[in-house]
Design a protein around this nucleic acid. Structure first.
Lengths: 245, 245
DNA sequence: TAAGCGAACTTGTACAAACAAGCCATAGGT
DNA sequence: ACCTATGGCTTGTTTGTACAAGTTCGCTTA
């Protein structure tokens, strides 16, 4: 663990613990540099990390202030339903309801950088939290990863983790589109809600460390089961609003 | 504009223009440092900015690669419906349907750091894109900003901008919770949809540069009108999934 | 042919120094 | 009492250096 991560971790703990309550000022960079016996640049890296997590805000000339005290989850917990569920204390389960190979559509070819007509693997999964069906996942995997996906246990808890263990695949980057849709008849049947009732939809494309697209997916959450949370600031602005389709 | 921002801007333009297509490698830091006659640290700040926008990915030891080529909006465009609409080429309009002062609830007291029972301003607005009703906004303003809000034109296009111009208020930090809900009868009537139809809900709390909470809001978008987009990576992880309420 | 090794390249981390720019409280004057 | 100027404090930007750690690719060797 890098020095600046240690410092960030220490400060984060102090914030979470309440040593620096919301609205309070953080010590100055110079003071922190002395306290941790590190260069100012290293301290700046540490507080920049906290700022990117939305824990502290910063303006030129004034002391940094504490904005929040909630620890945010890791990328793994965002990307993997199972890992997220586990960290929240839920028990996740899931099952593959359908899985078939087919040629990719033209839009999929673009999103997964495939040749038109190249083969993809289409998987329909139902995910549960503590036994309650919560999420319908329609995932399209690029052909090159399909064999590894087909070897997975149909009731496999964490696809992400299994793929890492079996073929060393790491999901490194993701793009997510979030909107609301009405439940179709299949969605409604699987999630146990009425047709037309609101679902939170997350469409995503995931790529490897090398920038190679692995999968694109259409995930639909039952309303009330899951909320997405974003912190942003004039400095860091992850979330973007877009016109609907 | 700082040197590193100029460099970032130049590289971003090159990516958007297609000089570096998706999947391509960026020049090395050393090469960029020579090209821009800047120190390596400055170049690193520039590419770190692009990485935070999700445009490029980076791993130790390997050249940086291009992940996307879409320009992401600024914080202002995320926070202000009007500014976002304008940047997308739409014409935004809106109108205040109700506005009244009342004592705050206990949950509002916590979110806006107010004393229990302190007065807040409750505003109901309907927002339109090109004349089409798209968004129902229920905003609660902290008492100290209420007078400035009440002085606003009821049909004011951009509340954010007006508040900046009238009292110098800057919205600097925001926390957003996103989920899907069914339209209530008021939502349905205002948006011209059927009761129970899906809406994309964004609950947010906004604070000033000093970390002082200004408003909390419950915004409901008609399904299909707006999508939220997030890019993330193992390095930068803005988006977080949470259990529903 | 295939595995393994190593050298060159590239990004990550850390330190040090200097100046610019913005904030804030205090001292002083009106 | 209020307003302003000023100086000290704090964060932002930039440069330079050094080493650590990971990737890539070609060459050697079994």
């Amino acid at each position: 663990m890098a020095r600046y991560e240690q410092i960030a971790s220490d400060l984060r703990d102090a914030i979470v613990r309440g040593d620096y309550p919301i609205g309070a000022q953080l010590p100055s960079e110079a003071e922190l540099a002395i306290r941790y016996a590190a260069a100012r640049g290293t301290v700046r890296q540490a507080v920049a990390l906290l700022a990117s997590e939305g824990l502290v805000g910063s303006r030129q000339g004034a002391r940094r202030i504490v904005l929040g005290s909630e620890r945010s989850q890791s990328f793994a917990e965002l990307h993997s339903f199972a890992q997220w569920a586990r960290s929240m204390g839920y028990r996740a389960s899931g099952s593959v309801l359908a899985s078939r190979r087919r040629p990719c559509s033209s839009s999929e070819a673009v999103r997964l950088s495939l040749e038109p007509g190249e083969e993809v693997l289409d998987v329909l999964r139902l995910r549960r939290l503590d036994g309650e069906p919560v999420l319908v996942e329609r995932t399209v995997y690029a052909g090159w990863i399909a064999p590894a996906v087909e070897r997975l246990d149909p009731d496999c808890e964490s696809v992400t983790q299994e793929l890492y263990e079996s073929v060393g695949l790491v999901f490194a980057y993701g793009e997510h589109l979030i909107d609301a849709v009405a439940a179709g008849s299949e969605d409604a049947r699987l999630l146990g809600v009425r047709r037309g009732s609101p679902l939170l939809r997350q469409r995503r494309v995931t790529t490897t460390q090398e920038g190679r697209p692995v999968e694109c997916s259409d995930d639909r959450y039952r309303a009330g089961s899951v909320t997405f949370s974003i912190r942003n600031s004039t400095a860091a602005n992850p979330l973007v609003r877009r016109a609907g389709d």
